[in-house]
Design a binder for these strands. Sequence first.
DNA 1: AGCTATTTTAGCCCCAATAC
DNA 2: GTATTGGGGCTAAAATAGCT
Length: 267
Amino acid sequence: MMKVTNVNPAYVIDEISSQHFIDEHYFIYVVKGIVVLYDGSKYLELRSGQSCIARKNRLGRYYKMREDGELEKVILTLDESFLRRFYNKYKTTIAKFDSTETCIPVNNSELLDSYIGSLHQIYSRGKISEPFSEIKREELILILLQNQPELAGLLFDFGIPAKINLEEFMVRNYTFNVNIERFAFLTGRSISAFKRDFRHIFNETPGRWLVLKRLQEAYFLIEQKGMKPSDIYIDLGFETLSHFSFSFKKQFGMTPTNLSDKRQRSA
DNA sequence: AGCTATTTTAGCCCCAATAC
DNA sequence: GTATTGGGGCTAAAATAGCT
């Protein structure tokens, strides 16, 4: 697990969790340092001056790294109620949006850079008021749409996730630590339908399957890749090392470090 | 297919024991 | 000192059954 460092809260408008479920659209701009976003299959690296939109109703996690001891980022929540207000106010034309990516890169522009600069000015003076936050976010949307009009199709889509291929989704996303209800929602199903479909596909209950899958991956990472148990358990979707260790032993008859040591000796 | 009530279980929290 | 393991208690979450 990469070290996560805290940033000056003055630059952070709203924090998103370092992993799991993305509940709203988020705009992420890296001022200094590196932010790496993971969507279940690939990584997107954002460096100074780069930005993206993390899409709502997706699973993702991110890692932050300092650069020359510094890390500054701007994260703005583009929540649905705000976007609805914006949409009603400006009657934006909605262009078609094709990408299915979780993290959509935003084109660099001088306009965007100076906008970020203007935020810096405001936030360094203390807490921002609600109306100000509304205006500044509206400004951001206008800038984004000027450069990438197609983003309207993403931002102003207020629908809920459609029914998608369950097997594919689960195999891709099992390392995300979210509950069954969330998995069901994200695959466009009720809990009942989710569990029924799940049983059909995997012949197993979702909970058991998830844990086994994570443990198998852990076994692989430790035995084949020589990774440390304490470095992987979070990225595999376990919350505590204690429980990871316990269930690992229950499954394989040895603790994760036993396996680690075994590998060391045979190497 | 999708609720809801009921039963069952997993796993988080906390912490002690152990290793190092 | 730090890192890892493991266990008991408890509760939220999951599984199940039964219903519409």
